[in-house]
Amino acid sequence: MTQQEALETIVKALDSKRAEDIQVLHVEDLTILGDYFIIANGTSTTNTRTLADEVEYQMTQKGREPGHREGRGNGSNWVVLDYADIIVHIFYKETRDFYQLERLWADGEQVDISQWIKTENGAC
């Protein structure tokens, strides 16, 4: 699986479970943590966990397992899935507003994901 295919799989998995404000930041030149950060939020802690489960399921179907997971317990406000080159951050909305990772990594390049997100009428 190429890096581009992994990004698409993750974004589509998040979108399929109604993640809010999905953003992909290219941070390769800014940190050794990974090449991309994917940031999204759910509407509740249950939705946040569901989003993480769906990403993990879809990536496993494509043969990739996260090297590390954080925040998977009940009531989690922030789940992190580490795929080495892609770090997925899934927040509860208020937690995302508090930490503002997008502001912290504002020097990262915003990736256009519009081709992977369904519009209101269901088309990609």
Rank of each mutant, 00 (worst) to 15 (best):
D15P: 09
T48W: 00
G71F: 04
D97G: 09
G63E: 00
D15L: 06
E65T: 01
H68F: 12
Q58S: 08
L33M: 15
W78G: 07
V27C: 10
M1G: 08
T119P: 07
T43W: 06
I10L: 05
K93A: 13
G67W: 12
D53R: 10
W78F: 11
V11I: 06
T46L: 12
W116M: 04
A84K: 12
T45K: 01
T50V: 12
C124M: 12
T119E: 13
R69N: 02
E102K: 09
C124A: 13
C124S: 12
Y92H: 12
T50M: 08
E109I: 13
T119W: 05
A13W: 00
S76H: 08
E102I: 11
T119S: 13
G108T: 02
Q4N: 14
D107F: 10
I32W: 11
K17M: 03
E70D: 13
K62F: 02
I10D: 00
Y92W: 06
E120K: 15
A40R: 03
M59H: 04
G122T: 08
D85L: 01
F98S: 06
M1S: 11
R103F: 02
T95R: 12
Q61S: 01
D29E: 15
I86S: 01
W105V: 08
E8Q: 15
G63W: 01
D112V: 09
N41T: 01
D29T: 14
L104C: 10
